[in-house]
């Protein structure tokens, strides 16, 4: 498989809320199999960018493509096929509260495959075992902790074996040990299943550990101010803000 081939292409994408400009003509791509991290201070439009990439919001201008298919303009069956190529973990997990973890993961399998009940449940168990939650399969989301919810949400996002996983702040609100475990999980999944990850975060330790490449958004200019390997950026960034972002926090950590 060609590792350098872009799987997601964002071209001159502009995002607005009403008249307020949030993102200004962003252009970048995500390569197949890499762990790609979107960085930036609070309120710079990280989650907004993610929601545009998964097609929840329509950009004011520009285009986003997954493979060769436009997220912005595809509709109908084409869009359904597109949606099945990626999984999303939302910030809060967004597990369905009225279903057990197992049922949460079985739902997409039930809707999109012909697999029998046994097969679906086995697959759901397997996905839960990947995130270390096999023994909690029959609990309700309200009966597990925040970190477990996030892991269960990743398991649900993986139910249909997507090529790409979008994670919105996977380690926010988790203790360092759990966050670290989650990072290990992401690396493991990326290596063993060759899943492409697009992750929104601002946890520095996690960025250094997992990211192959990062882009950094700027709240003032609404553009990308830095792009590349996080370690290289830390050591050689010229922009004072980027520099302080990468350095000051590591000194504290």
């Amino acid at each position: 498989m060609n590792e350098k081939k872009p799987i997601i292409t964002v071209e001159k994408m502009t995002a607005k809320y009403g008249d307020r400009l949030v993102l200004d003509e962003l252009t970048f791509d995500v390569k197949r199999g890499e762990i790609f991290v979107i960085l930036g201070g609070s309120g710079c439009g990280k989650s907004t960018l993610l929601k545009h990439m998964i097609g929840l919001y329509k950009p004011a201008a520009g285009d986003i493509r997954i493979g060769e298919v436009s997220v912005v303009s595809s509709e109908g069956e084409k869009r359904d096929a597109l949606i099945r190529r990626f999984g999303v973990m939302y910030q809060s997990g967004a597990l369905f509260g009225s279903m057990t973890l197992l049922e949460n993961i079985c739902l997409p399998l039930e809707e999109f495959t012909d697999l029998g009940k046994d097969a679906r449940e086995l697959i759901a168990h397997m996905k839960l075992s990947l995130v270390g939650l096999a023994e909690f399969a029959n609990l309700m989301p309200s009966e597990i902790s925040g970190g477990m919810k996030k892991r269960a949400a990743i398991a649900r996002a993986m139910a249909l074996d997507p090529e790409i996983l979008f994670l919105d702040e996977p380690s926010a609100g988790l203790d360092p040990v759990t966050a670290d475990e989650l990072d290990d999980l992401i690396i493991q999944l990326s290596r063993s299943l060759n899943i492409t990850f697009v992750i929104v975060t601002h946890e520095l330790p996690s960025i250094y550990k997992i990211a192959d490449r990062v882009i950094m958004l700027d709240a003032r200019t609404k553009k990308i101010i830095a792009e590349g390997d996080p370690v290289v950026l830390r050591d050689s960034a010229e922009d004072p803000w980027v520099k302080s972002f990468f350095n000051r926090k590591t000194q504290q950590a």
Binding site: E135, A137, E143
Partner: peptide, 10 residues
């Protein structure tokens, strides 16, 4: 061994 039997729901 990782596919342990799930804890039954309360």
């Amino acid at each position: 061994e990782k596919l342990a039997d799930p804890i039954a729901a309360a």
